[in-house]
């Protein structure tokens, strides 16, 4: 009975989103849906509003107007239990933002214990499961400072995964990493996709977008300029701005 609706209702839907900082419009009329188990990649020059769009999805940035829905339930609007909705939206940051005073496991279980009020033993089980998904069970008792950048970002992914979100947002997850550590994080993301996770990714990893994404969205000047299959966007972009951008970044 649930199956048809969850197949037709997108995991994430952004409708008519506007946002400006002061008098500068950052986002204008953004409409975007991400279907269940879909991986959508967002490309665009810096300052095109990609990160702001992502941060509007869980209202770390408050949209000026427009709405956001997760599995049909509103995130925006009056009477929304924002903290409950945020548990259904995982977020991974460019700078990891791991809590330095907590171990990897402590990072992963904090929201389970304090928001979901899960008893410690149970939270630890769920946390270790999430760490296993990113291949870091053996680092559970390490503090962030004792982990490499790639490991830190994987712990941050586990922190979001542990809440069993309906959709995961990635805000340039590999931009702060040394090149040789990028692969580990991308491998985890590829693995998550194989497990059916819904993902909205802002990133400059073109190669990864080309072979892992289901759909690529190109943004510029706070608007969605063009979207389509990866081969379509990379191989045969329709818009001049997309072509110019791809020519610049791909040399």
């Amino acid at each position: 009975m649930n199956a048809p609706s969850s197949l037709t209702v997108p995991s994430l839907r952004i409708a008519g989103l506007d946002k400006s900082f002061g008098t500068d419009p950052v986002l204008t009329g953004i409409d975007l849906s991400v279907a269940r188990s879909e991986m959508v990649f967002v490309l665009g020059p810096s300052g095109s509003g990609k990160s702001t769009m992502l941060r509007c999805c869980n209202r770390l940035e408050e949209p000026d107007s427009g709405s956001v829905f997760v599995e049909g339930d509103p995130v925006t609007g009056p009477g929304v239990d924002l903290n409950r909705m945020r548990q259904r939206i995982g977020m991974v940051f460019q700078s990891f933002n791991l809590y330095p005073h907590l171990t990897a496991l402590g990072n992963v279980t904090l929201a389970l214990r304090r928001v979901q009020k899960m008893p410690r033993a149970q939270a630890d089980d769920v946390g270790l499961e999430a760490l296993a998904l990113v291949g870091l069970t053996d680092r559970a008792r390490h503090y962030p400072a004792q982990l490499s950048g790639g490991q830190q970002q994987r712990v941050a992914i586990a922190r979001a995964l542990a809440l069993k979100p309906a959709v995961m947002l990635f805000d340039e997850p590999t931009s702060a990493l040394d090149p040789e550590l990028v692969g580990d994080v991308l491998a985890v993301m590829r693995d998550m996709k194989a497990r059916g996770m819904t993902m909205l990714v802002v990133s400059h990893e073109m190669g990864f977008a080309r072979d892992a994404a289901d759909r690529v969205v190109f943004m510029d000047g706070g608007r969605i300029v063009e979207q389509g299959l990866p081969e379509q966007i990379f191989g045969n972009p329709q818009q001049e701005r997309t072509r110019a951008f791809l020519a610049r970044v791909q040399g």
Binding site: R84, M85, M91, F93, N97, L98, Y99, L110, R114, L163
Partner: peptide, 21 residues
Amino acid sequence: PKGQREAARSTGLTPAQTLIW
């Protein structure tokens, strides 16, 4: 850093919980 608060809020912690933990 501001990111600490954002990470906590993104996992559903309330402002008070974010402060305490």
